[in-house]
């Protein structure tokens, strides 16, 4: 499955879309009080908008009857709620122990060479954001990369350019 971002722009944020609200309503219906669905709500909004802007944060908080401080407290705790703009595709490169042993560094260097970005950075064309990630759970096929929903295992430097071509 490839859940391409619907690319609703955050810069023109005009409130949660109906689709988003419906999806959040569903999550709220599963928990004892609305706040408890806040992580799900942020996932829903992030899926359509790429990241959680201040406006989006406010909208979600209001929708769930919580304060922005409380929501941001949760948002900033986790790795994968993005409070800053990210590229269209997120490259998660495993830097945990087995991938480290098996040479994730070389992959990192290759990515840097091709994309000219370091961990935490986004390419100038807003295509990729590169992030380090804890063990992807395929240590028997290290090193590994997860790009959006696609897992690449036993990655070699020469694979990188081919892999990156899959994304636009």
């Amino acid at each position: 499955m490839n859940d391409e971002l619907q690319n609703i722009s955050n810069s023109t944020f005009t409130g949660l879309s109906e689709q988003e609200r419906n999806a959040i309503d569903h999550e709220v219906s599963l928990v004892p009080y609305p706040k408890a669905a806040c992580i799900e709500a942020m996932k829903i909004v992030q899926k359509s908008r790429g990241w959680i802007s201040d406006d989006a944060l406010l909208a979600i908080a209001e929708y769930l009857n919580m304060s922005t401080a409380e929501l941001d407290s949760v948002a900033t705790f986790y790795n994968l709620i993005f409070r800053k703009p990210v590229g269209r595709h997120i490259i998660l490169l495993c830097d945990s122990i087995t991938c480290w042993v098996m040479g994730y560094k070389i992959i990192y260097q290759e990515l840097y060479k091709q994309l000219n970005i370091q961990f935490g950075e986004t390419t100038a064309d807003k295509k990729f954001t590169l992030l380090p990630n804890a063990c992807l759970g395929c240590c028997d096929h290290a090193p590994a990369i997860l790009i959006d929903n696609d897992l690449y295992q036993d990655v070699k430097t020469e694979d990188i350019s081919i892999i990156l071509k899959n994304y636009n």
Binding site: C38, I39, M42, S73, V74, Y78
Partner: peptide, 21 residues
């Protein structure tokens, strides 16, 4: 949404409650 701590069973419960893990 990512954090090793979520595996710790009580932190996991906080995460499920929509809180910091």
């Amino acid at each position: 949404v990512g954090r090793y701590m979520c595996g710790e069973e009580t932190a996991l419960l906080n995460a499920l409650e929509g809180k910091r893990a």
